Amino acid sequence: MRQLGASQARLLRAWSQGVAGDRRATSVPAVLERCLAVQAQDLRAAALGIRARGCGLTEADVHQALGAERTLVRGWFMRGTLYLVPAGDAGRLRELLAPRLLRRSERRYRELRLGPDELALGERVITEALADGPLTRDELAARMTEAGLDASGQVPFHLVRRSALLGTACFGPVREDGSATYVLARDWLPASAGPSGADAVGELLRRYLAAHGPATTADFATWSGLGLPAVRSAWERLLKGGELEPCRVGGVDQYALPADAPRCEEPTGDVRLLPAYDNYLVGYADRRLSVEPEHEHLVRPGGGQISPTVVVDGLVRGVWRRDRARGAVVEPFDGGLPGAGAEARDAEALDVEALGVEALGAEALDAELSDVCRFLAA
């Protein structure tokens, strides 16, 4: 079994995610093909996550891919959370994940007094309304009210979400004012064809490990939201078939896909500014490889929040925030990053040397900050 040190395993993970090793894609679809999915409760944070994995990409490029190009789509996928995924994968992911999510939603429907008749009416209203073209949730709620449904509170959200999980509707283009719209999935998404059942779980596991490996069974189960029995079964099939490479990281058994191309295994001083709830942090049950325990409370300050982070060679070295006057403001751990003063610069150099990097040039951080500021202003 291959033995990996923490730094080496972290670099392999960050390389797989496209956030280390100077690995950047040149288009929005290429980013998503590489990292599989980007968490997207906040669409602007998702766009920043794509920017961090790309070269020269802007928020407008993301909206173009969601709209005119139709190369990616936003939807409720892993764990019922909103993600951006390649449009060609959306149908297969929905077919695999939606049945479990719909079962989990039944209690909420009852709480909202959405019985079989109300659910059927809501689905019919949404289908007929979207035949006229893209509509926002508020516009769909107005149609529901006209049809005699109580569209107050969370009812429109759950009816639209249910329609998406059933495969009737999906997110469409983003309007100029930033409003999300919905469209008929049959008119918007490419036809899905691919494995189903247990084979679909295995395919998702392959895609997960390609974008996140090395990782554990618990990491995949937590990220995907699939039940452990299905996850373990798929894992065992791939392992027996020789499709997984076992490795040991800090006494823990982990797995990756056998390397079919050179990967970055040496630190390069690669700096990335990742948005809140970035997949590099939420894609694992255990984040100790990417966040040192003493900094966990700064990355996760409470209330389920995950802060925007500064990552150097896959290790979180600080957090950042957007200031209207100053743009991206970095708040580094342990004394600062290069350019923050001689004392802070020396402390940062020592920390970097401890990770095996001889030096981290201030130019790398300055370039990343400039890129973020340009992206936010675009």
Score class of each variant (00 low, 15 high):
Gly49Trp: 02
Leu337Pro: 02
Arg300Trp: 03
Ala47Glu: 03
Glu123Lys: 02
Leu337Phe: 00
Leu350Glu: 15
Gln305Ile: 13
Glu123Thr: 10
Val201Ser: 06
Ala261Arg: 15
Gly225Leu: 08
Gln64Ala: 14
Cys247Lys: 13
Gly122Tyr: 06
Leu165Cys: 08
Arg186Lys: 13
Gly269Thr: 06
Val73Leu: 03
Glu353His: 13
Ala364Ser: 12
Pro195Glu: 10
Glu265Val: 14
Arg288Glu: 11
Ala347Arg: 15
Asn279Trp: 01
Ala215Met: 08
Asp313Gly: 00
Asp278Tyr: 03
Leu32Arg: 02
Pro293Ala: 14
Leu365Met: 08
Ala185Lys: 00
Gly251Gln: 11
His212Glu: 00
Arg108Met: 09
Arg263Phe: 13
Phe171Val: 07
Gly5Gln: 10
Trp76Glu: 05
Gly21Cys: 09
Val160Glu: 00
Pro29Gln: 13
Arg24Gly: 08
Gly80Glu: 01
Ala164Phe: 06
Gly227Cys: 02
Arg272Gly: 03
Ala45Ser: 15
His212Asn: 10
Ala141Phe: 03
Pro258Trp: 03
Ile306Lys: 01
Asp351Met: 15
Pro86Thr: 08
Leu112His: 08
Pro156Val: 08
Leu226Asn: 00
Leu228Cys: 07
Gly242Trp: 09
Arg94Gly: 09
Arg108Val: 12
Leu273Met: 08
Val310Met: 01
Ser179Gln: 12
Arg263Met: 14
Pro195Phe: 07
Ala200Asn: 00
Pro134Arg: 05
Ala45Tyr: 07
Leu121Met: 13
Ser163Cys: 14
Gly250Pro: 07
Ala200Lys: 05
Leu360Asn: 04
Trp15Leu: 05
Val231Ala: 10
Asp42His: 09
Gln154His: 10
Leu273Phe: 01
Gly54Lys: 00
Gly56Ser: 09
Asp199Asn: 09
Thr216Gly: 10
Glu331Asn: 07
Leu205His: 04
Val31Thr: 06
Arg207Leu: 11
Glu353Ser: 10
Gly80Cys: 06
Gln3Asp: 12
Gly302Gln: 08
Gly167Ala: 04
Val282Ser: 14
Ala354Asn: 14
Arg237Ile: 03
Val125Phe: 00
Pro262Gln: 02
Thr222Arg: 11
Arg104Asp: 13
Ala285Thr: 06
Asp219Gly: 11
Thr216Phe: 02
Gly339Pro: 02
Ala347Pro: 04
Leu119Ser: 06
Leu273Gln: 04
Leu121Trp: 00
Ala87Met: 04
Gly303Ala: 13
Phe157Gln: 09
Gly361Asp: 15
Glu59Gln: 10
Glu111Ser: 12
Arg113Lys: 14
Val38Asn: 01
Glu95Gln: 14
Ala378Asp: 15
Pro258Lys: 10
